[in-house]
C-alpha cells in the first residue's frame, strides 16, 4: 500500500517536472520580443475591449500608444482622464485632460407625441428598418425604436423606455465609447460634454423638415422657428436645415432657450431646480424691454444730432437713413454685452 502511494507520488512528480521543463524550453524558443511597456499600458486600460478608442481592443490601443510619438490621437474615452494620466505616466508623455462626455439621445418623439401611421413587421433592427423606409411615424428623422443602440452598448448604459419608445442613457454607466453613435442609422445620438455637475442643455430633435411638416409628425419636434436663436444671448445656438443646435462650448446653461421653446424640443438635464418658465420669460421680457428703450433712446439721440446736422448743411432724410442702419445693430450689441455682464 505504502509503496503504491510512493510510486504514484514519484510518477506524478517526475511527470510534472518533465512537462515543466518542456514548457519552459518551448516558451524560451518561441518567445516574442515585445516592448514591456505595452503590457503595462494594457494593464492600466479598463479592459472592456469596446473599440471606443478606434482600435480593435485595449491591447491594440496599448501597442499603438507605445509606438505613437505622443498621445494626441490616442484617447481612451472609457477610462477617461484617470486612465490617460496613468498611460502618460508609463510612457512619459504629456496628456491634456479632456472634458468627460456622455451619449445624448436627440429625439423626444415619444409614443404620445409622435403617433404611428403604419406598422413595421420586419426584422427588429433600426438598420433594416431605415433601409426599408422612412419610419412608422410621420417623422423621417427620429428614433426608430428597434434598439440597435441598446444592442451596441457593451456597458449596459442604454435601455429602451417602453413608455416613450425611446432609448434612455444611464449617465453613470455611459463611457462615451461611441458605439451607439455608430449603430444609430438616423445619427440621433451625439457625444456631448457632461457639463458642470452633469448639467447640460441640448436640442432633443434632429428633424430637418419645415416647421408645419415636423409639427404634424411630432408634437415635440424642433420646428425651426428660431425663437431660441433670438433668445440666446451667447450666440450658442445655430439654426441649420430647420433644426436648432446648441454648441456646448458656448452654452452658459441659462435655460432661456428651454423656457422659450414652443414645442419643448430643448431639454436641460441635471439642473438642481426645476425649470421656472414664467420667471425666465419675465426676465427675458424685461431685458428685451430695456434693450428696446435703449435702442429708441439711442435712435432719438441720433435723430436729434441729425436734426442738428441738417440745420448745418446736409439734407436730413438721407443722413437719418444712413445713420439709423449702423446704429441699430450697435445698440443690440450694447444690450447684449450688458446682459452678459449681468449674468
Amino acid at each position: 500500500m505504502v509503496t503504491i502511494i510512493i510510486w504514484t507520488i514519484a510518477v506524478v512528480t517526475i511527470l510534472g517536472l518533465v512537462l515543466a521543463l518542456v514548457l519552459y524550453l518551448v516558451a524560451q524558443r518561441f518567445k516574442v520580443e515585445e516592448d514591456p511597456r505595452i503590457d503595462e499600458v494594457e494593464k492600466a486600460m479598463p479592459g472592456a475591449n469596446c473599440g471606443g478608442c478606434g482600435f480593435a481592443g485595449c491591447r491594440a490601443f496599448a501597442e499603438a500608444a507605445v509606438k505613437a510619438p505622443n498621445l494626441d490621437n490616442n484617447y481612451c474615452p472609457v477610462g477617461g482622464n484617470d486612465t490617460m494620466a496613468k498611460v502618460a505616466a508609463i510612457l512619459g508623455y504629456e496628456v491634456q485632460a479632456k472634458a468627460p462626455q456622455v451619449a445624448v439621445v436627440r429625439c423626444n418623439g415619444t409614443c404620445a407625441a409622435r403617433p404611428t401611421l403604419n406598422e413595421y413587421n420586419g426584422y427588429p433592427s433600426c438598420k433594416v428598418k431605415a433601409a426599408l423606409y422612412s419610419s412608422d411615424t410621420g417623422c423621417a428623422w427620429g428614433c426608430l425604436g428597434c434598439g440597435d443602440c441598446v444592442a451596441a452598448c457593451q456597458f449596459g448604459a442604454l435601455s429602451m423606455d417602453s413608455g416613450t419608445g425611446l432609448p434612455v442613457v444611464d449617465q453613470e454607466k455611459c463611457t462615451a465609447c461611441g458605439a451607439c453613435v455608430k449603430a444609430c442609422p438616423k445619427a440621433i445620438i451625439e457625444l456631448r460634454p457632461k457639463g458642470p455637475r452633469g448639467m447640460r442643455e441640448f436640442v432633443s430633435c434632429v428633424n430637418k423638415d419645415k416647421g408645419p411638416v415636423a409639427k404634424k409628425a411630432c408634437a415635440n419636434a424642433c420646428i425651426g422657428c428660431g425663437i431660441c436663436v433670438k433668445t440666446c444671448t451667447h450666440a450658442a445656438i445655430v439654426m441649420e436645415n430647420n433644426v436648432a443646435y446648441i454648441d456646448p462650448a458656448k452654452c452658459k446653461l441659462c435655460r432661456e432657450c428651454e423656457a422659450m421653446c414652443p414645442t419643448g424640443a430643448i431639454h436641460g438635464v441635471n439642473f438642481p431646480k426645476p425649470l421656472d418658465k414664467d420667471a425666465i420669460k419675465e426676465r427675458i421680457k424685461v431685458r428685451q424691454q430695456k434693450a428696446k428703450e435703449a435702442a429708441t433712446a439711442q435712435a432719438a439721440a441720433v435723430t436729434a444730432s441729425a436734426v442738428a446736422n441738417k440745420k448745418a448743411d446736409a439734407p436730413a432724410e438721407a443722413v437719418t437713413a444712413a445713420a439709423a442702419k449702423p446704429v441699430m445693430p450697435g445698440a443690440e450689441e450694447a444690450s447684449e454685452k450688458k446682459e452678459v455682464t449681468n449674468e
Partner: peptide, 8 residues
C-alpha cells in the same frame, strides 16, 4: 387599420 410595412 394601419398598413403593415415590411421588407420583401
Amino acid at each position: 387599420s394601419k398598413l403593415i410595412v415590411s421588407p420583401s
